[in-house]
Amino acid sequence: MASRVLGTALFRSGFTVQDAPKYGAERRGAPIFSTVRAARGASEGETINERGIIHRPDLVVVADDTLLAIPAAGTLQGIDPDTVVLVNSRESADTWRHRLNLQGELLILPAGSEVEDRADLPHIGATCAGAAACLLGVIEPEALTTAIDEELGPLGEEAVAENRENASAAFEAMIAHRGIVTEGAAVPAKDYEPPAWVELPVDDASIAAPDIRAAANSVQVRTGLWRTLRPVIDYDLCGKCWWVCSTFCPDSAIAVEGDKPVIDYDHCKGCMVCVGICPPHAIGSIPEYLAQQREQQTIEEGEADGTDPADR
């Protein structure tokens, strides 16, 4: 959605545009991304010959900062020191620059602190498009709102109005950085970096066939990163029932250890099924970012007073 709004806004501003979403599996938790290419001079019949993903983006907008920690999402693929990175986050730009070890420009689009569950974030697509439109510096606010009317019209007036408001607010929020994105030089096909191929000699099928001998090794995939809300068991309330939570958790992320149910936070996806079905309501939920902030505090306090957090 963000790419369609941005693409249309660029088109309305006289550019030749190509925008495309890229789908993987269409399920919750799967990273989605989309790209926009724009070339000046639509009137001169300028065309865009490249297709597919953008190898060297001028601007990367990350709508969900949890994606930055997931290598498979490839959020920062192809960036160089001239690329501007905009992250929708509660953390500061310094924090992210440090974590990602980035040399280029990194800006923060502040994530709404009033929204507890990131999965509920309303209209994040339009917000990102609005911020991006401002950073590009070549789109007037009117072109942005026209693009929203055109692209979101079928969703009804209410949706259009809310998206317009959010996009405009994001545009305003970025005004100090208007036009910060610079146009990278075109990369001729002959200069594309070849992918990091690994040369594999032709092996016998018995060696070369993908033969996994590790049982249940999917546990190495940390789906806990998907979580926006965290379920927390209050052991004073837990009635040690017939382990309803453990049976119903779709992800097998609650096992009974000794005589208490324990949530495996490395894998819990935060669906909140367990919160709803626990008979004595012993499982509550807190926003994941708050839970992480508290954990961080506990660690820091421990460092300050010299005790090991594990001992407390």
């Binding site: 599996a25 399920r27 249940a216 789906t223 453990s246 049976t247 779709p250 097998s252 096992a255």
Partner: peptide, 20 residues
Amino acid sequence: PSTHLLGTGTPMCSGCGGLE
């Protein structure tokens, strides 16, 4: 059972009734 054989870490959607 209260411990489970199926490994965690699958790409199924959060809250998938089929996976349950």
